[in-house]
């Protein structure tokens, strides 16, 4: 039986009727059309579906939509500012941190969450923060550089 839930996604309120067996990632992608959140493994191994829920990055493939009821969600679509790219996105573009791009939304969100907690992370902290987000293209080097670059820009 469907249940009514309330989600606040990227500063917008939604009321939705969902089945208990629907995952948050599926509701974001297929009900709300927020397809920036990717599905790479569906069992919490890859981090492509990372969203920020109540301030913390989580695998949205492991969260039931009903579990997210009343919570505040940020997806990649909520990172871009009205004025254009978020500084972190600018760093990802400038430093060449994007290749196939499938891990990128999750990477950006994990990185953003890190910088919110720790504006000047060292390399080990950066690598740890993105260690649940697999990337097969870049070898992570330029992703780490991009996060570092953004941290420098924002704390200067």
């Amino acid at each position: 039986m469907k249940r009514l839930i309330k989600l606040r996604v990227n500063d917008k309120d939604y009321e939705l009727a969902v089945e208990p067996n629907q995952t948050l990632v599926d509701v974001l992608r297929y009900t709300l059309g927020l397809t920036g959140t990717k599905k790479g493994c569906e069992v919490g191994d890859c981090g492509s579906c990372t969203v920020i829920m109540d301030g913390k990055p989580v695998n949205s493939c492991l969260v039931l939509a009903v579990q997210a009821n009343g919570r505040v969600i940020r997806t990649i679509e909520g990172v871009e500012a009205d004025t254009g790219l978020h500084p972190l996105q600018v760093s990802f573009v400038d430093k060449g941190a994007v290749q196939c791009g499938f891990c990128t939304p999750g990477m950006v969100l994990s990185a953003q969450s890190l910088l919110e907690r720790n504006p000047k992370p060292n390399e080990a902290e950066i690598r740890t923060a993105i260690s649940g987000n697999l990337c097969r293209c870049t070898g992570y080097q330029k992703i780490v550089e991009a996060i570092h670059d953004c941290s420098e820009k924002m704390t200067r």
């Binding site: 992608r29 927020l34 397809t35 920036g36 959140t37 990717k38 599905k39 997806t75 990649i76 679509e77 990172v79 871009e80 790219l85 996105q89 990802f92 573009v93 400038d94 060449g96 994007v98 196939c100 791009g101 499938f102 990128t104 939304p105 950006v108």
Partner: peptide
Amino acid sequence: PRLDAPGKATGRAKYVD
């Protein structure tokens, strides 16, 4: 900078699914 990077970094880039 790569032409596809802004679209991919913002989640706007479309993959088949």
